[in-house]
């Protein structure tokens, strides 16, 4: 038995352990701080290039632009944290926006609160279908929600039949919801902020909120920990749909003109915002604050490029680049960390 392994001397691992944690923590901070830094940089450059960039009206416009995407990004975060995706939000938004116009055309005196509630309920209904397809039907979220994107849009087109509904068909109280402000801050931005804060607090401080991260981090372990994985996934899709429904109603209030094409492609902006905001597409990490910051960054870049009179093509290219950088960073981080873990494991075993 000369080939028997020698007993391993105990290996002290603490210093390495703390180094690894330090790395993780640094990486997380860099992620959120990175967005803020890039944001500041863009603001400085744009202000230097165009002195009117940071004036009251221009800021208000930017806030209005970002509010709806930020709201959708919050819903999307709930889904992405569990390793799913919701591509249907653009169509849900379009559908409820047109529906809002139709409601006012059919019932001119309708209560604004009721319209908002109906919009959210319809959005939730689409979320129920998405959630059922994914959790009961076991259809991958990508496929299920992509299918829903087309189905809802198709229904929308059939219903609208080329019709457009204008601001004159909607009550002015409703329209002021989209353009009015308190102390210079648009209502829309306040609503979006409220959504971000409420969902952010939910994800941080409630058991069920933490369970979403657990599911995304390790689905098998989540099952073993007694977490009802399907129920949580289902409810996340419902929440994403509900927020998209709300966003649709607010979209109608903001622009006043609705037809069947509204919100086409918004889902890609939303997913881009979420990823740029540091929500890992592989699930388990990221926050709605990050996602909202991502939405702000992408929107500010778009406005800055307009202010600097850069052709709009570059806006899309830069958004794409940011997305790639964010995802590569994610990937790189993951690999570095697992490599680190492996090495430490061997040293331990040897």
């Amino acid at each position: 038995m000369s080939l028997r392994a020698q007993a391993a001397p105990p290996v002290e691992l603490r210093p390495e352990g703390s180094a690894a944690t330090g790395l993780v923590q640094r990486a997380m901070q860099v992620r959120e701080l990175g967005i803020v830094a890039v944001l500041a940089l863009v603001l400085v450059i744009a202000t230097i290039g165009n002195s009117r960039f940071l004036t009251g009206q221009s800021i208000r416009d930017m806030l209005l632009d970002v509010s709806i995407v930020a709201m959708l990004a919050v819903g999307q975060t709930l889904v992405v944290v569990m390793r799913h995706l919701d591509f249907s939000v653009g169509s849900v938004l379009g559908f409820t926006a047109f529906m809002t116009g139709q409601l006012f055309v059919a019932h001119p005196g309708m209560s604004i609160v009721l319209v908002i509630v109906i919009g959210m309920l319809v959005g939730a209904g689409f979320g129920v279908i998405n959630g059922a397809l994914v959790t009961i039907g076991r259809v991958p979220a990508l496929v299920a929600t992509l299918g829903m994107l087309y189905v809802i849009r198709g229904v929308d087109y059939t219903w609208a039949h080329g019709k457009q509904i204008n601001a004159s068909d909607m009550p002015s109280a409703f329209l002021s919801l989209g353009s009015g402000n308190i102390a210079g801050i648009p209502y829309l931005a306040l609503i979006a902020l409220a959504v971000v804060l409420v969902v952010g607090a939910y994800l941080r401080t409630f058991r069920s909120g933490r369970e979403l991260y657990a599911i995304g981090s390790n689905p098998q372990a989540a099952t073993l920990a007694g977490i009802r994985v399907s129920r949580r996934s289902f409810l996340a899709f419902v929440a994403s749909g509900t927020l998209a429904g709300l966003a649709g109603v607010l979209w109608a209030a903001r622009f006043g003109t609705v037809d069947a094409t509204i919100g086409t492609g918004v889902e890609l902006q939303v997913i881009a915002a979420v990823v740029v905001g540091g929500v890992a597409i592989f699930g388990g990490s990221g926050s709605v604050y990050g996602a909202a910051l991502g939405a702000v960054l992408l929107s500010v870049i778009a406005s800055a490029l307009v202010a600097l009179k850069v052709p709009s093509f570059w806006g899309e290219a830069i958004n794409g680049l940011l997305l790639l950088v964010a995802i590569s960073l994610d990937r790189l981080l993951q690999q570095r960390l697992s490599a680190l873990l492996r090495r430490r494991r061997v040293r331990h075993a040897a």
């Binding site: 058991r207 933490r210 369970e211 991260y213 657990a214 995304g216 981090s217 390790n218 372990a221 989540a222 920990a225 007694g226 977490i227 890992a280 388990g284 990490s285």
Partner: peptide, 13 residues
């Protein structure tokens, strides 16, 4: 759950 803290792992749920 690799993304969560040690404490959360202990007390999840």
């Amino acid at each position: 759950f690799p993304d969560l803290s040690v404490a959360e792992n202990v007390f999840m749920g």
